[in-house]
Design a protein around this nucleic acid. Structure first.
Length: 287
DNA sequence: CAGATGCCCTGGGCGC
DNA sequence: TGCGCCCAGGGCATCT
């Protein structure tokens, strides 16, 4: 499930491999992947002949600037961006393929089609020229450099449960189910702890763990789960899953207390936590 | 406004 | 061996 560290790993690969290359055409075969475009031929028309200038990222979204155009990619659940020299057959579910003038290809492969590819309608005024379609996203933990005190104040103003807030892309961009569980375990806070119940020090500590874990995962190329769906642009899996302390570890011994990690259905998906180490918070105040 | 729910979609795992 | 069921979950729409 590509989250920020996986998107950042892909971004680095794209930056290395595609900046400076000229696009000769874009082949779209998966209409759902370009669902924001009423006309699926639009990406080809607008990108033809443009040279890739920069590769950016906001949360889980990737952006390729090419001439006046910005191509935005979200990997969804099962999306991959794979580089190829253009020889050999394309893998199944290659819904969008950017062909460069040397014949090499950038293939958007996405079996479950939760991901998407679209050309931005333009930059949002202010906010560092972020594509307008990404205006709703909150701060990016690795690129926006939000001071800890600001984070703590923002967090403590919300009454939402911590996990819901960490996964809320409007609050902070890039954290999903895996990293929210890992961050909350590191901070010794349970998923259902109300954000507003944290004191200043707890909120700052949570932020430190958030940054530390995302950076550590980027260093190891992100997390590939048992399905090995996540791959970088060279097709390599990540290695951060070896460092997961709670995610997908139901029944295994907690590294903190030795007790079993618990799995809880919550918000329509699985949450993993240690009942011994992670505190649930004060609960609703009475009186 | 915030929380809950359902939908989209396919491959893989599992029970029978 | 094979079929059908269920699950994985990010983002969004919709309802309360």
């Amino acid at each position: 499930m590509p989250e920020l560290p996986e998107a950042e790993t892909v971004r680095r690969g794209l930056e290395t491999e595609t900046v400076g290359r000229r696009i000769s055409r874009v082949e779209v075969t998966g209409l759902r992947s370009v669902r924001r475009h009423p006309d699926p031929g639009e990406p080809d028309r607008r990108l033809r002949g443009q040279r890739v200038q920069a590769v950016g990222r906001v949360g889980k979204f990737l952006t390729l600037a090419a001439g006046p155009e910005v191509l935005v990619v979200h990997l969804g659940m099962s999306g991959q961006l794979l580089l190829s020299d253009g020889a050999g057959p394309r893998p199944p579910h290659s819904h969008v393929v950017v062909v460069f003038e040397d014949g090499s290809e950038l293939r958007f492969v996405d079996p479950r089609t939760f991901g998407q590819v679209f050309l931005s309608a333009g930059p949002e005024p202010g906010r560092r020229g972020r594509p307008a379609e990404l205006a709703h996203l909150g701060f990016d933990p690795l690129t926006d450099g939000l001071p800890a005190g600001r984070f703590a104040a923002l967090l403590r103003s919300r009454r939402t449960m911590l996990k819901a807030l960490l996964m809320d892309q409007r609050f902070v961009a890039g954290i999903g189910n895996i990293y929210s569980d890992e961050i909350l375990f590191a901070a010794r806070l349970r998923y259902d702890h109300p954000a507003s119940a944290l004191d200043e020090e707890q909120a700052k500590a949570l932020y430190r763990h958030l940054l530390r874990i995302l950076r550590a995962s980027v260093r190891l190329g992100g997390s590939s789960l048992s399905d090995m769906q996540y791959r970088d642009v060279y097709g390599r899996p990540g290695r951060y899953q070896e460092r997961h302390l709670v995610f997908a570890r139901e029944g295994l011994a907690c590294t903190g207390c030795g007790g079993p990690i618990r799995r809880q259905a919550w918000g329509g998906r699985s949450t993993f936590y240690c009942p011994g180490c992670q505190i649930p918070g004060p609960g609703p105040r009475r009186g």
